Simulated scan of single mutants.
Amino acid sequence: MAQARAALLFSVVHMLGCEGAATGKEEILPPATNDRPIVGILSQEQSFYLHSKYPEENYTSYIAASYVKDVEASGARVVPILIGKPRSYYEELLKKLNGVLLPGGATYFNQSNGYADAGQYIYEIAMKMNDAGDYFPIFGTCLGFELLIILASGRGEPENRIRCYSYSNMPLDFTPDFRNSKMFAEAPDELVDILANEEVTVNAHQFCIVDKNLNAFNLTKDWQVTSYSDDDFDVQFIATIEHTRYPFYGVQFHPEKNSFEWKLSKKYPHSYSAIKANRYFMDFFVNECRRNVHTFANAAEENKYAIYNYEAKFTGVLGSQHHECYFFEPRGLKN
């Protein structure tokens, strides 16, 4: 009953918004009433480096534990979403989840039945849900943010992103209208000041989205850029973005690394201000997930899907950039 009421409320508001009665900051959102949110995190293909550390298991996919911890620190539980499944798997799972996190990583978008194919299913299903008045948020980090824009572009060739290299900690250059966004409308001034003036956002990417990527596919009406950063060669790239209609959000940097990744050579900022500022992003997203009222059938079903069924392995001691990782679906040694 609660789910039906929330969906009806959003549907009415959505229709009013399309007619211009409620737009921008005046948009009325479903109340954040779900105090037991469950967030799905999409796994991705096993990296070559991690595969070399577990050759006998030959795992199909993994999730860095820092994403799981980041979600849990904001008051939600996690369900892993596996790659390589039919569309029906994602359709059924999203009916039980309250939002999806598309994590960063180092996989490619042209591998069949992988991260990008699963991400496309999730993106299309989430759009359909929102169009039906079922408020369903997505948050993309780094690679996940790039995937959101590439999917919005039609996922054609060449991919709608550019090469850029950033392995630095940087501040954000906010746009003049960044406060007219859902992500930053209520962000405390203190946190905005830290993000704008201190080198606290962790960047680790070889691709990025720039203004010309949005312009090339007429995405500027659908996506609002709220900040930029410069890569190691002074290329200005989009650092934060959100969809103007759907509750879809993206950041090019890694808010999860400040609190939960510890490789010394990476020099991630772990200061109090860096932790405090970067916590904001997952806190914001999980609060968006509280607006969704999907549920599992019962506690037993929740437990069946939960991340707690898997053991986080200490991969940092093996030289990985990830302190811990969860691994899924071992295939064993190939003949």
Score class of each variant (00 low, 15 high):
residue 131 D to N: 15
residue 130 N to F: 04
residue 82 L to V: 03
residue 98 N to I: 03
residue 85 K to D: 04
residue 123 Y to Q: 06
residue 135 Y to E: 01
residue 101 L to D: 00
residue 100 V to F: 00
residue 87 R to T: 11
residue 97 L to F: 05
residue 87 R to K: 15
residue 101 L to G: 01
residue 105 G to T: 09
residue 96 K to M: 08
residue 109 F to D: 05
residue 105 G to W: 10
residue 92 E to A: 06
residue 125 I to M: 10
residue 105 G to V: 09
residue 125 I to S: 09
residue 77 R to M: 12
residue 114 G to L: 03
residue 103 P to F: 03
residue 99 G to D: 11
residue 135 Y to G: 03
residue 75 G to W: 02
residue 104 G to N: 13
residue 99 G to V: 10
residue 130 N to C: 11
residue 132 A to Y: 12
residue 127 M to Q: 14
residue 81 I to T: 01
residue 89 Y to D: 00
residue 107 T to I: 10
residue 97 L to V: 07
residue 103 P to Y: 05
residue 110 N to I: 11
residue 107 T to E: 09
residue 91 E to V: 06
residue 128 K to R: 15
residue 113 N to Y: 13
residue 117 D to P: 00
residue 93 L to M: 07
residue 110 N to E: 14
residue 108 Y to R: 12
residue 78 V to T: 06
residue 114 G to M: 00
residue 78 V to H: 01
residue 85 K to V: 04
residue 102 L to P: 04
residue 79 V to Q: 01
residue 70 D to A: 15
residue 111 Q to K: 09
residue 85 K to H: 08
residue 81 I to W: 00
residue 75 G to Q: 05
residue 117 D to F: 04
residue 101 L to Q: 03
residue 109 F to E: 00
residue 131 D to Q: 15
residue 128 K to A: 15
residue 74 S to K: 03
residue 95 K to S: 13
residue 119 G to P: 12
residue 101 L to Y: 06
residue 81 I to Y: 00
residue 105 G to E: 09
residue 98 N to D: 12
residue 73 A to G: 12
residue 93 L to V: 01
residue 98 N to E: 06
residue 92 E to Y: 00
residue 81 I to N: 00
residue 109 F to L: 01
residue 103 P to I: 02
residue 97 L to I: 01
residue 80 P to R: 02
residue 113 N to C: 14
residue 120 Q to M: 09
residue 89 Y to V: 04
residue 106 A to L: 10
residue 70 D to H: 15
residue 75 G to M: 03
residue 108 Y to K: 12
residue 109 F to P: 00
residue 105 G to A: 14
residue 123 Y to L: 05
residue 92 E to M: 05
residue 80 P to T: 07
residue 103 P to W: 04
residue 99 G to C: 14
residue 128 K to Q: 15
residue 108 Y to L: 13
residue 107 T to K: 05
residue 116 A to E: 02
residue 94 L to P: 05
residue 115 Y to N: 08
residue 135 Y to K: 01
residue 124 E to S: 09
residue 113 N to P: 07
residue 106 A to N: 10
residue 90 Y to E: 03
residue 95 K to N: 14
residue 107 T to L: 09
residue 103 P to C: 10
residue 82 L to H: 01
residue 131 D to G: 13
residue 129 M to C: 11
residue 103 P to V: 07
residue 113 N to H: 14
